[in-house]
């Protein structure tokens, strides 16, 4: 059950990756990366349940926070050209 869900999510991740490679604008790529971040959180949580180690959820929480901050930081860099 978990494995099937993980495989289906990976197929979705592949589609997102194609969009990130195709672009065409930087914003399309960031949007794809952001969607990928949400997917990764779900994947990590599912993987934890599939392997019977729910401690993976801690990693998922950290990843959710980091991916949000990454998106905002990259956007700020594109908009202002610096991060301070």
């Amino acid at each position: 059950m978990y494995i099937a869900a993980i495989i289906a999510l990976l197929v979705g991740a592949l589609m997102i990756l194609v969009r990130a490679i195709l672009g065409p604008s930087a914003y399309d790529r960031i949007l794809a990366m952001n969607a990928m971040g949400t997917k990764t959180v779900v994947l990590v949580a599912l993987f934890g349940f599939a392997s019977g180690r729910p401690e993976f959820l801690d990693l998922a929480i950290i990843y959710a926070l980091v991916s949000f901050i990454t998106t905002v930081a990259i956007l700020k860099y594109i908009e202002k050209g610096r991060l301070d």
Binding site: T38, A45, P54, I61, A64, F68, E79
Partner: peptide, 30 residues
């Protein structure tokens, strides 16, 4: 584990639309 799952759900529920809007605004300004 249940509390952690709820926490991730809430976290993503608030950050995902915010991130989406930030991207939109940046694209619009560009």
């Amino acid at each position: 584990v249940a509390v952690r799952l709820l926490m991730i759900i809430l976290l993503l529920f608030f950050t995902a639309p915010t991130a989406t809007h930030a991207i939109t605004k940046a694209a619009r300004l560009d």
